[in-house]
């Protein structure tokens, strides 16, 4: 149990998607103008990460990895390595799942759909989602539970970052920022300062 908790905390703080790997930066910069929409997008990203990362793990484990096909083809498959296909399959899985999530949410929870509606299609091209799948492929997670925790942790870390950023940007409207820095320039610099504060977590190991 402690291991799972450790992976989640690691995803939120020490390996934060935004501050350590710069993933999902585009929507982070474009959407973080007010707290409410940022929160909506954050929830959608957590949701999608929580589903796509384990699905891609199964795909990697049982289809793509070297020798992974031997569960259905026996000895003959021991040398088959399909990992060069992983990029195209991962993105197809992500796009399909995002579409599916959109339809399910629309059917069962129209209120949530109205909140997330415009963001869901955007998530298919959010690099945080694709990035989590690719990092998953590089690390040696033992089972699907750990992978799900990793997806959840990185999603929460991303949400944490975008909501924090939106709160700061709401306040900074009232400050006198030098004209050429207004808008995107100051946002970059604030993100940099936030990232400096996140370096202090980097020594923690759980």
């Amino acid at each position: 149990m402690g291991n799972y908790f450790g992976i989640i905390v690691e995803g939120i703080f020490t390996q934060n998607m935004i501050f350590a790997y710069f993933l999902g930066m585009c929507s982070f910069l474009a959407i973080s103008k007010n707290v409410k929409t940022s929160f909506g997008l954050g929830v959608a990203v957590v949701f999608v990460l929580l589903i796509t990362t384990p699905v891609n793990y199964l795909l990697n484990e049982y289809v793509l990895k070297e020798g992974a096909l031997s569960w259905c083809m026996g000895e003959a498959a021991a040398t088959i390595d399909l990992s060069f296909l992983s990029l195209i399959l991962f993105i197809a899985v992500i796009a399909a799942i995002v579409q599916l999530v959109e339809m399910i949410v629309e059917k069962f929870s129209p209120a949530l759909y109205n909140q997330l509606g415009i963001f869901l299609p955007l998530i298919a091209v959010n690099c945080a989602v694709m990035g989590a799948s690719l990092f998953m492929q590089q690390r040696d997670w033992v089972n699907i539970g750990e992978v799900a925790c990793y997806g959840l942790g990185s999603g929460l870390g991303w949400m944490f970052a975008i909501v924090g950023m939106a709160a700061i940007r709401e306040k900074i409207k009232y400050s006198d920022v030098p004209a050429p820095l207004r808008g995107i320039g100051i946002t970059f610099i604030i993100t940099g300062l936030m990232a400096i504060s996140f370096i202090c977590f980097s020594g923690i190991s759980l």
Binding site: A20, P180, L181, I184, G192, A195, F198
Partner: peptide, 17 residues
């Protein structure tokens, strides 16, 4: 480390604008 490219791009944006 991670923070510097953000700040550098912020400064480039500043100069450009």
């Amino acid at each position: 480390m991670a923070p510097m490219p953000l700040i550098l791009i912020g400064l480039i944006v500043w100069y450009h604008r």
